[in-house]
Design a protein around this nucleic acid. Structure first.
Lengths: 189, 189
DNA sequence: GTCTATAATACGATAGAC
DNA sequence: GTCTATCGTATTATAGAC
């Protein structure tokens, strides 16, 4: 039974997720990941055929984490507005790291938009979890054809706030912008 | 007289500005810039001591371009609200490229936030031209201590809109979000 | 499954002829 | 000022011993 194999795979994956987030994908080398994970460099081509495949696995991990979170959100609240406020809460809960490195989802997308279509699509599929779930809530509010535009505006405000916050390394910007978003949600309808 | 020298310098600078924007700084090699500019690779250490220095020069070029644009804006309009709408117009005028590669100022900052402090500061100084000029307009509107927060919110909405637009490669998102920002400006005061 | 050793290449940067 | 040729290193990736 491949027990240590799975352990190593997870260690590599988590180290890569951290480094891709903190340094960026193109600015993180395989050696960096090997060092941070404690798994010898040459070893981990056994787990991932290429750097691209490692990226795919990291994004896959982030996707299942986010899907799981959204499931919990759906159990937590049924009111669309309450659910939208959970996105704002996520933003607030991650304000320390996000004011330093940006949004783990957003900043990855910004970087990979400048890479090949395969990577663009991969990172977009992660972002899509948030956008499409938001859209669902606006649909439940009876916003019809406006739902998608409202979801886009919500994500734009959230991502924009996190982005400016990271540029100035100022956590307060995320907190101030998130409060504005909550007021915007309150005023809906 | 160093005539061709200046020509080469400018060719390198413009090719680097394009490539850093379209592919990202860390994903663009010196050879890429050499090829795109038509200036032989080895040659251009005569003009720039390092890749970092080339980045500095590219940002410097963008800064003087933006400063010049802001000067023209100040000549064009004196009303603060009209001036703020010029930022929105800039966003609209660049919608084609921005929906493909993101904002030249914003996406560079997002990437370099994950690099060393020197690069962070360099890109932030470029972003600062837009933020501080916006803040000035809110101050002229009598917003006092709220001016900076309002300027941040304006930039957050603009950058967020461009970001989502580039993730989905959809120019319409920039246009829709910019209209929302104009409505927000209209409703001020 | 694990690891070392290393191949093959691309990178940033330099030397030196012209 | 211009260019070719190349250095040294770091990169992604592989081969093969254990």
């Amino acid at each position: 039974m491949p027990v240590k194999g799975e352990q190593n795979r997870v260690k590599i994956l988590q180290a890569a997720a951290d480094l891709f987030y903190q340094r960026g994908y193109n600015n993180t080398s395989f050696s960096d990941v090997a060092m941070a994970s404690g798994v010898p460099k040459g070893n981990f081509y056994y787990y991932f055929k290429s750097k691209d495949e490692l990226l795919g696995a990291v994004i896959g991990m982030r996707k299942s984490w986010l899907s799981q979170l959204i499931s919990e959100w759906e159990a937590e609240h049924t009111e669309p507005k309450d659910r939208l406020r959970l996105i704002v809460r996520l933003m607030q809960d991650n304000s320390v790291a996000s004011s330093r490195y940006g949004c783990p989802v957003g900043s990855l997308n910004v970087e990979l938009v400048k890479n090949d279509e395969e990577k663009r699509q991969l990172s977009r599929s992660l972002f899509d979890l948030l956008l499409s779930w938001s859209e669902k809530q606006f649909l439940a509010m009876g916003k019809g054809s406006m739902a998608k535009l409202l979801a886009i505006h919500l994500m734009a405000m959230a991502q924009g706030g996190i982005m400016i916050s990271s540029i100035y390394q100022d956590e307060q910007i995320i907190l101030a912008e998130s409060e504005r978003i909550n007021l915007w949600i309150d005023a809906l309808d």
